[in-house]
Design a binder for these strands. Structure first.
Lengths: 213, 213
DNA sequence: TAGATTGTTAATCGATTAACAATC
DNA sequence: TAGATTGTTAATCGATTAACAATC
């Protein structure tokens, strides 16, 4: 119940810790110190200890951290021990690619459906799941307790669809549309603005080239 | 030549400014004050002025900013007035989706080729571009002055491929593989770790639910 | 000119790093 | 026990916000 809010900067680093610890675990490594992890991950040992201690003492003085234990604890913090019902809205290139490419089930995300408003796609199977018409989406979200919607539709309709999702009890939106979604504060939105990301890359390339001249 | 380094925090906000200014421009709005933009974008007017002033004075006291001018200046800062030759490596679901879905040319990214090591894909056309075998990639990068590679291959081969790209003169890598790429400091890497992003969403959903109980 | 709003300096806030006492 | 390394407090650094003089 103690709501000491963890900063998004810390949260943003957790998946990377989780990834490295998973790899160490798979390599059969049992213990690791913050200094060793620091060498591998290129972040300071101090930051690693601070980050972990936001959630409690996972280590042991003089010994370090048990890899498997730490891996599992971070998984729990991220909520990967729980399941989430997920749908994809927008069965275009990107929606289909995410359905096929993301290993949703591996991390407790249960892929429950995929929707589109293009009749040509209705009934087509993606990952053994028939594409359904958008009209059915609202009832489906409500009846199946969908937590997460992946929005891979054009920006023009994204805000309207987000509104419908919120009305029907969605908890979080993974937003690939190039628009900011105005939703209530209790709805979590994680934006993946791919063209923003590419622009940032372009900036850094140009900056480097200019500094070289 | 004055290399006052701009922080990545600022750079990360530029594409969003660019997006909003583009929309304002399309709506025919000519001028805007930092306060008005603040209301629309939900960032402080102070931050907006600080951000823009990293690159020089784009406004006018008592008047505000000219939307079109500011839009173009930010575009230049991001290097969108220059062209970049780009290839996609990995013609799986995600690689094909990005080729079809991203409007690369719109922002000066010239889509020059797509590669894969699966013979079943060779010759298949994506966006009017035949998928080429990976063996041809290195020579292609060198001969065609490729600046940017989009990495949509499994993590197992990503590090090796990145090394080859660097050897052949790549400037930046847009990395979708779930692995950190160890490349020289002069090579720009922009990571899009989709599963990290989804985990962050899961954390925020769970955190909110726990605080509600 | 008076009013508005930038550009910029100063103050505050938050995040990162350093240091070290606690302890395994 | 001695050595190692965490957990945690303190110091530093950087980013954000506030304030206001400059100026259009």
């Amino acid at each position: 119940m103690e709501n000491k809010e963890i900063s998004q900067a810390v949260i943003g680093r957790l998946p990377r810790y989780f990834r490295y610890l998973g790899e160490l675990k798979d390599e059969g490594i049992e213990r690791i110190s913050s200094q060793e992890l620091s060498d591998i991950m290129q972040v300071t040992a101090s930051q690693i200890r601070q980050d972990f201690n936001n959630f409690g003492g996972f280590g042991q003085q003089g010994y370090g951290y048990k890899v498997e234990y730490l891996y599992e604890e971070i998984g729990k913090i991220l909520g990967l021990d729980k399941t989430h019902n997920l749908i994809i809205i927008g069965a275009g290139n990107l929606g289909q690619a995410l359905a096929n490419y993301m290993n949703f089930e591996r991390r407790g995300f249960l892929f429950k459906g995929i929707f589109d408003n293009n009749p040509a796609l209705f009934g087509k199977k993606i990952r053994n799941m028939e594409i359904k018409p958008m009209e059915e989406m609202e009832a489906f979200v409500k009846e199946n307790g969908i937590d997460i919607a992946v929005l891979t539709i054009p920006k023009g309709s994204a805000v309207e669809v987000a509104g419908k999702l919120v009305e029907n009890g969605i908890r979080g939106i993974w937003n690939f549309a190039h628009v900011d979604l105005p939703v209530p504060a209790e709805i979590q939105v994680e934006n993946v603005h791919l063209s923003d990301s590419l622009m940032k890359l372009a900036y850094n390339i140009n900056r480097y080239e200019q500094n070289e001249l």
